[in-house]
């Protein structure tokens, strides 16, 4: 108990420090800082995406996104390594089939969710949303499928292939930007097009679709990997 109160005191001290720092340093900004000013005022003429956040994520700070996708890939592969499935023996205790409600609902909801996910990441440069959100929605659809049919094992190979190919195409588009336009992940080698139409903003829809497919297949891979592991008997 003494230990806990000591920890609480420590956290309280940290909180006072944090609170003091925020109160002292934070001022309500009157105008944008120079980076944000540049992004906001030049984005429409340079990139042509309606959603400035998308332009920052995909092009201006595209390298961060590449690193982020790599970190997620590493996490997914470490999880796959830890939960290595044993050679499929005859299932000792067959998992119970999902309830009828779940099975019926999943038949209706899974295609709709996948279409919603694809819509979200294809329209990432026009509306709020994009590859990460669309990928998460697709992952949720796969999760529903796995919950509704516990006995039916979905092949993970398809997801591995989708993930590898989309990652490769992502880097290839980045290199195309290096060769044809200003630099790595520069999307201006395709025409900017008319603002607020689907085919606009250079290669941003392409790259964001690739990110969406990659994130979606990684999350689905994690979920299927977890769903397939049986508690080991030894």
């Amino acid at each position: 108990m003494l230990k806990n109160s000591f920890i609480a005191l420590l956290v309280l001290a940290f909180g006072v420090l944090l609170f003091h720092g925020v109160v002292k340093l934070y001022k309500v900004p009157e105008k944008l800082n120079r980076t944000a000013e540049f992004y906001n005022s030049n984005e429409a003429s340079q990139i042509g995406a309606a959603n400035v956040v998308t332009a920052v994520v995909v092009t201006y700070r595209g390298l961060y996104t590449l690193g982020e996708v790599t970190v997620l890939f590493l996490a997914a592969s470490v999880i796959g390594f830890f939960l290595k499935r044993k050679k499929k023996t005859a299932p000792v205790d067959a998992k119970p089939a999902g309830s009828e409600l779940m099975t019926t609902a999943s038949k209706v909801l899974v295609p709709g969710s996948i279409i919603l996910g694809v819509y979200v990441f294809v329209n990432g440069h026009l509306t709020p949303g994009g590859g990460f959100q669309g990928g998460a929605i697709i992952g949720t659809a796969i999760l529903l499928l796995a919950l509704a049919n516990p006995t039916y094992s979905i092949s993970k190979k398809v997801f591995h292939w989708i993930e590898s190919i989309s990652g490769f195409v992502f880097v290839a588009i980045g290199l195309a930007g290096l060769l044809l336009a200003g630099g790595f992940l520069d999307t201006r080698f395709l025409p900017n097009g008319e603002m607020l139409s689907l085919f606009s903003a250079g290669a941003i829809p392409l790259i964001y679709s690739m990110i969406g497919l990659k994130v979606g297949s990684e999350i689905s891979g994690i979920i299927l990997e977890l769903n397939d592991t049986q508690p080991n008997q030894d």
């Binding site: 998308t54 949303g129 990460f132 998460a136 929605i137 999760l143």
Partner: peptide, 19 residues
Amino acid sequence: SPDVAMTEAAIGAGLSTFL
């Protein structure tokens, strides 16, 4: 920030809780 709100609702509230 609607982008962040969508991500948090899809990942933080949905997927993590399930996991």
